[in-house]
Design a protein around this nucleic acid. Structure first.
Lengths: 187, 187
DNA sequence: TGATTTGTTCATTTTTATTTGAACAAACCG
DNA sequence: CGGTTTGTTCAAATAAAAATGAACAAATCA
């Protein structure tokens, strides 16, 4: 499974236009459950997460009591496999917690709205490692560029080297801003 | 085309393991061009952008002079269509600029490393509108929950209403942090 | 212990996104 | 003008991601 921040796809706009011309009807009234699911589906899609993950969270978010997996499957009409994978992911993010209900063997899930924890988890586990990896790769790129500059003895590559060094500064800046944002969220 | 922040996909890990067992060989030496392309491909994929966009930017980033579209097509072995669409996207992000070279009719492209402008553009055009939309949707969700609470007269939904209000606070926080980050990047 | 319930895994299917390339338009050239 | 170069668009092909569901394992029960 994968997390990202998304733009609408190349041809998505065209599809939308065609859809509205074809006269797609939207339901006039929306229930709380439907509204919540829709909201979280589009939210998780910003981060490139599967729709099913948003559906599950949206359902749990407006549920008055924790739900068992088979209840989620039934409410959403998704497969057991998707539920299991989606819940595993959401637990991993710290976005849902599970508890036992006396006299019921099933695991029961509820939405956790500790956004600060979720974001921190995302930054630490997803963003930070990528930035760390990027740092060492940039070093290698700089090395290659400087090598070329020497070999050729020319000034042609000087601009490239400067550009790489500028990017390194931005890389560092990016890494510095993460703990700042986390601190601000926890405040 | 669509932008997001990505996790690796559900089955991606398995594929990796299979690959290493099959003994995929990596080239021992990497050129500057290759290293730069790889770097930016994985970078843009964090944001859910197509690989071709990263390839194009990576190539332009280490090019000593601006390149015409047919040169990009030739270097990368991608189609004219992908180049055109990718360059349009990158121009839209403010990540590449184009210029005319005297005596040559073709448009020439070069990488722009004004990261602050790119990030600002992303926040303003992608993130902010989504958050604005989210705000009004949350209001509707709250209304529906309060309606239910009244109808049933019960206290069952009280927890849900509280949860929605908590989420609204986080929504506001999210919207506040954007200008802060932008200001910090511009500093 | 054997039957039943609960939950996970992963090959296959389905859905969605990206790339291609041919058709087209627009600008330039002689 | 007609021919050529440059660049865009979009239907179709390809590639990638997500969902399904059957097979399996593990826990509980009677």
């Amino acid at each position: 499974m994968a997390v990202a921040c998304r733009f609408p796809s190349y041809q998505a706009v065209l599809v939308k236009i065609k859809g509205s011309l074809a006269g797609e009807e939207q339901p006039e009234t929306t229930s709380l459950k439907e509204a919540s699911i829709e909201y979280f589906v589009s939210f998780v899609q910003i981060f490139g997460l599967p729709k099913s993950v948003g559906q599950i969270y949206g359902l749990l978010f407006v549920s008055v009591r924790p739900l068992a997996m088979d209840e989620i499957v039934e409410h959403l009409g998704i497969s057991k496999g998707s539920s299991s994978q989606g819940l595993t992911l959401l637990k991993g993010l710290g976005a849902v917690a599970s508890e036992q209900i006396p006299g019921d063997r099933r695991e029961h899930f509820k939405a956790d709205i500790n956004v600060s924890r979720i974001v921190t988890h995302f930054f630490d586990n997803q963003l930070q490692p990528r930035l760390d990896n990027g740092e060492s790769r940039l070093k290698e790129i700089l090395r290659l560029a400087q090598e070329l500059e020497q070999e050729e003895g020319g000034t042609e590559n000087a601009g490239v080297v400067t550009r790489i060094k500028a990017l390194q500064k931005w890389q560092k800046r990016g890494m510095n801003i993460i703990p700042m944002v986390i601190r601000w969220l926890k405040r």
